[in-house]
Amino acid sequence: MIRNLAQGQRSFTSNTFLVAGADVMSDGADPEATPLDPDEGRTVVVDTGNEFDIVPVIERYVEDIDAVVLTHTHPDHVGNTAEVVDAFDVDVWGFDPDHSLVDHRIADGDTVELGAHQYDAIHTPGHKEDHLCFHAPDAGVLFAGDLVFAGGSFGRTDLPEGNREVLIDSIDRVLEAVGPDLREMHTGHGPSVTDSPYEDIDLSARAARTM
């Protein structure tokens, strides 16, 4: 189960994803009111978003979480982190352990458990130096952060630590890792892609080279 907790929010926030082992609600349940009972794996929040009260949104679906995992540390992706840590007493995992919010390092090539699947961490700088993408080969799922978006757009490179050539290299790495059989791509902003997401990443690679 992957759910975007920031859906419908009008604050300056990234998407924030609750990833749990359970894939479905109880039969006949109200999906906006019934907590999930994850039956396996680790219940994780990928990016905490910013400027909205995320804790009750998490509690709408699960009683507890096991960890917070960050794609990168731009404020719109991490602004709610302290509140999540306080509410659930969890550690935060990310690329840069020197960042004040990050308790544990995820290095390039590490494997992390999100929900019921194992994800490979891919260091993908260019938008920000500490940027990570997470790919589950067996499930065909990618968390792309702000590297690429639906429709062939890509992350900004005009912010500190941004670099267009490095971003292009990162997109190429992800393309090679995921392959055409990718089924789902969940991005830091905008809609997730469940229809041929590999094609969107390929379009992003081309656009980043020409724009």
Rank of each mutant, 00 (worst) to 15 (best):
T13M: 12
T13R: 13
T13L: 14
T13V: 07
T13S: 15
S14Q: 10
S14I: 04
S14C: 08
N15I: 02
T16F: 03
T16Y: 01
T16R: 01
F17W: 15
L18Q: 03
L18S: 05
V19G: 01
A20W: 02
A20L: 02
G21M: 08
A22Y: 00
A22L: 12
V24C: 15
M25R: 14
M25A: 13
M25C: 09
S26M: 11
D27E: 14
D27I: 13
D27C: 10
D27N: 12
G28E: 04
G28H: 11
G28F: 09
A29D: 11
A29G: 05
A29L: 06
A29V: 05
P31C: 06
P31W: 00
E32A: 08
E32K: 09
E32L: 06
A33P: 02
A33C: 08
A33V: 10
T34W: 11
P35A: 13
P35C: 11
P35E: 10
P35M: 11
P35N: 10
L36Y: 09
L36A: 07
P38Q: 10
P38Y: 12
P38G: 05
D39G: 15
D39V: 04
D39I: 04
E40W: 03
E40G: 10
G41S: 08
G41M: 06
G41L: 04
G41V: 01
G41R: 09
G41W: 06
R42I: 01
R42V: 02
V44W: 10
V44S: 12
V44T: 14
V45I: 15
V45K: 04
V45T: 06
V45Q: 08
V45R: 06
V45G: 09
V46N: 06
V46A: 10
V46K: 02
V46R: 03
V46T: 00
V46P: 08
D47E: 14
D47L: 01
T48Q: 02
G49E: 09
G49I: 04
N50P: 06
E51V: 07
E51D: 15
E51N: 14
E51K: 14
E51P: 00
E51A: 14
F52K: 13
F52E: 08
F52C: 05
F52I: 10
F52N: 11
D53R: 13
D53Y: 10
D53M: 04
D53F: 07
D53Q: 12
I54G: 11
I54L: 14
I54R: 14
I54T: 08
V55L: 06
V55R: 10
V55P: 03
P56G: 12
P56R: 10
V57S: 03
V57P: 01
V57W: 08
V57M: 05
I58L: 02
I58Q: 01
I58A: 01
E59S: 11
E59M: 10
E59Q: 15
R60G: 05
R60E: 09
R60C: 11
Y61R: 05
Y61T: 05
V62W: 01
V62D: 02
V62S: 05
E63L: 00
E63V: 00
D64P: 08
D64L: 00
D64C: 02
D64Q: 15
I65E: 03
D66I: 01
D66L: 02
A67C: 09
A67V: 13
A67E: 07
A67N: 04
